[in-house]
Design a protein around this nucleic acid. Structure first.
Lengths: 193, 193
DNA sequence: AATCTATTTAGATTTATTTCTAATTAGATA
DNA sequence: TATCTAATTAGAAATAAATCTAAATAGATT
């Protein structure tokens, strides 16, 4: 079973049990088997509503049903409940539910998406961590073999944002760009933050 | 802690975890602590939404928060999670969550409520079990020391339902009423079903 | 076969939850 | 102190879930 499927299953489990009437149904069935009409009376609900709840519980395998005469008796599947309790829901399991690397990768993409539109910067991020993402994205579009005069660099930066001076200053500050007098260039190895 | 409180707590726990984004937050925090803005970017939600989710998780004690600079870092409270897992959610615990006797008592009341309005029967229940509840309720309104002639009994029953003949027949069938020739009376001890 | 009963399905309505925007607060920084 | 940032709160809008009525189904019983 993939992490994705496991996650969905766990989520569905909590969703199904996260309802007052369904939790009560489980409680009632833990004591003795019941038919739909009885449960409806006990919970003060109409039969179709109870039927709907039982359907969800049944999908998860938490209840079984057997026919008796004209009735359908529902009962708790204790085995399934114990299995659920055992299988899922340890901290390790929970941690495994999120593919962290994937999330880390897409985080930067989301920062970019949030601050870049049509190839231009909407804003210079105030938070350093986000700003670094944007600056890195910018600097990687410069030719690493070339040197740039300040005026030349400013023009190029204005493509992205009016405030080219801030951009330039930040880049130097973060050592994404090396400066000597009025000339700028990319360092040999850019460390991605 | 009362059963009622325990039930509510369990329900709330499932409710809170029964949401995709909250479950993902738990997963993310299981790996490392995060601030609200980061989580918002990762989950593609606005800060207030994440803040709301974190609030629910915090109420349950599943996450803690600590300030760092301008940020508030949230982290998973693994202890709390393990405790939850251990405490709640065994079949026995679940069974204890419903006060069965209370439910049994009110079941009859609910049957009556469903079939009686303004002291009259809306219908004679088709299901024997429900019918017994109604018949018992009726017969207990007869004077146990008196004998009734058939015509007299019919008149009395018509207060409750047009079809007095069926009512009378059912009562005799269930031995809630003794018949001899044209005379009826209540047995010495009425066994409640 | 025809009827009756309990249950389920379909679809509409009501209710609860999630999510957002706008405004506020609390804390850090200039 | 004034300003900035991140977070939270309030309240509205959007979305999801629960519940109901009416109709259909499947199984017993006559």
């Amino acid at each position: 079973m993939s992490d994705d499927e496991r996650f969905e299953q766990l989520l569905q489990f909590f969703k199904v049990l996260g309802n007052k009437n369904r939790l009560q149904i489980l409680g009632l069935l833990a004591n003795q088997e019941r038919n739909v009409g009885e449960l409806a009376l006990m919970l003060d609900l109409k039969e179709p509503t109870v039927s709907h709840h039982l359907g969800l519980l049944k999908e998860l395998g938490l209840v079984d049903t057997r026919p008796e005469g004209n009735l359908r008796l529902y009962r708790l599947n204790q085995k399934a409940l114990e299995k659920m309790n055992k299988d899922i829901f340890s901290p390790k399991q929970l941690a495994a539910l999120v593919d962290v690397r994937k999330s880390e990768e897409t985080w930067e993409e989301k920062v970019l998406k949030a601050f870049v539109a049509n190839g231009r910067l909407l804003d210079i991020p105030a938070r350093r961590k986000k700003r670094l993402v944007v600056l890195t994205w910018l600097v990687q579009q410069l030719d690493p073999t070339q040197q740039y005069h300040e005026l030349e660099l400013n023009e190029w930066l204005k493509q992205f944002h009016e405030d080219c001076a801030s951009l330039r200053r930040y880049m130097v500050e973060e050592q994404l760009l090396i400066r000597e007098r009025n000339t700028y260039w990319r360092p040999a190895f850019v460390q991605t933050p």
